[in-house]
Design a binder for these strands. Structure first.
Lengths: 267, 267
DNA sequence: ACACTTAGTGTCAATTGAACACTTCAAAAC
DNA sequence: GTTTTGAAGTGTTCAATTGACACTAAGTGT
């Protein structure tokens, strides 16, 4: 019976709704100026120990509430930061190393912000793909500053967030080769060059223009609009849209990019 | 300051080493008699409420200790049950629905076995691929019976373990088409037919014998042995081995099976 | 010796992949 | 208003891979 008493004390005094042992973190990808970027936040320390907080970025994340599932928690974090919902958001890995919280800076921050700063926290990492033009950073409680940083220029992050970001990038590279999800990073209307540049950026290799166009069009995942660019100082490019409905209803082949050294098996 | 006191009471009385909020579950695949199977356990209820326990299977799993990471916890569960280590074991998804623990049977079991039976538990699910001949079920504390059940005959399981199993199966089908991991389900030496039957079972479709052999051999992932079958009442088949070293060192192309309706992009 | 069963083998047509260069269109520069 | 500039857009050819397809080989059992 003892554990019931302990349990109720625990629930009452630590927090009525936050589970102190599980968090979600969102690796939010955007694409602008021909660069793949992550949306990172500068941590807000309530009882400001300013020198520690100095230029210390982190992935947006939060503890999971007792009444929400993991997907909901991730969607909440995303919405609180960007104001957006209905975004591509996919769990990709849980991280639970007991040592992920041992950096001095992290411990200082946790002491200011968590009721149980020594607790082991495992985190479930999500990746989000966003058209970064749509993002309006919300004046939120949990970040005083948010920035889009090119993935090549990510500094040292809080906790194990560098590991998580790298994991997300690897997951993105793989997924993009199997499913047509890259479109989530572009605006509604985009040119074929936009799309190709995006793929080249993610995959870090050059693609043949003519082959790319042919395959993309044959795949049926995009539709040409009558509309073209205006006011560009060269031949205006046609706009395309992603056939989200077709793809989501499974009426369409995958966009399946070959991986380095791979080959296809079987009849 | 209050939370420190609570924290220490909590840690002392609930459990010194178990984190009550995160568990791991292992979906253990095996392949025998031309069937894909899962290794499931019958739950052991300490203060036996026998009628509730009746033929109620579950995935092997356990709470995660404070001093181990998630992979280690999963490996521990696997070893405690099968006696094996160094097995293919891969995290594939975290499950954290608040309602995953609401079945009456589950709650009864938790009350008998957990110090904090009402706690929200999220679980990190792993899939393991095993040569089922190697498994010697350990007379373990946490299961009084373990069985290999064909995936087509999985009954209702504890918690959300049916969801987890289905997720594992889907993950296996996808992974097997990208990486040469199916071999983990076979003995060291196997025939080409063994391998083909395995792929056909996992993918649930027939494959052309001649094309299969050609692709497998060209891929370089297997090597023919001089040895052949003995004592079979038909033409004896040649044995092959999986080139684990080559594959793990990345010196080899993937085994990449085409998916339904897919097509490959790019030069 | 014959029946039975599974192993093992090759070719051809169709598809897909990869490499490759010139013309078109608009604005800007002159 | 002619020319320059820069990105868009377009087909073909050859090589490699895929997929379909049917018979012979090598053992055991009768």
């Amino acid at each position: 019976m003892g554990y019931f008493a302990v349990n109720s004390i625990y629930r009452m005094s630590v927090s009525p709704s936050l589970n102190p042992h599980v968090s979600v973190d969102c690796v939010i990808f955007g694409f602008s100026k021909e660069t793949l970027r992550l949306l990172l936040i500068k941590r807000t320390v309530p009882n400001a120990v300013t020198e520690l907080d100095d230029s210390y970025y982190a992935l947006p994340g939060d503890l999971v509430s007792d009444n929400e599932n993991l997907d909901e928690a991730a969607a909440r974090v995303l919405k609180e930061l960007t104001g957006l919902s209905g975004i591509f958001l996919q769990q990709f890995q849980a991280f639970g190393d007991p040592l992920r919280i041992t950096k001095a800076k992290d411990r200082a921050w946790l002491k200011g912000v968590r009721q149980d700063p020594d607790a082991r926290v495992i985190t479930v990492a999500y990746m989000a793909l966003i058209d970064s033009n749509k993002v309006q950073i919300q004046p939120g409680s949990f970040s005083k500053e948010a920035v889009w940083l090119p993935i090549a220029e990510i500094p040292e992050l809080a906790f194990d967030h560098n590991d998580i970001s790298e994991g997300a990038l690897m997951a993105l590279r793989e997924k993009v080769q199997i499913q047509p999800i890259a479109f989530e990073l572009l605006p509604e209307k985009f040119t074929m060059s936009d799309l190709q540049t995006l793929y080249e950026t993610i995959l870090e290799r050059d693609l043949d223009k003519r082959n790319f166009r042919r395959k993309m069009l044959n795949s049926g995942v995009i539709t040409a609009l009558p509309e073209k660019q205006h006011g560009v100082s060269n031949k205006p490019a046609r706009y395309y849209v992603f056939n989200r409905n077709l793809v989501e209803n499974g009426h369409l082949g995958f966009v399946n990019l070959k991986m380095e050294g791979s080959f296809t098996l079987f009849s």
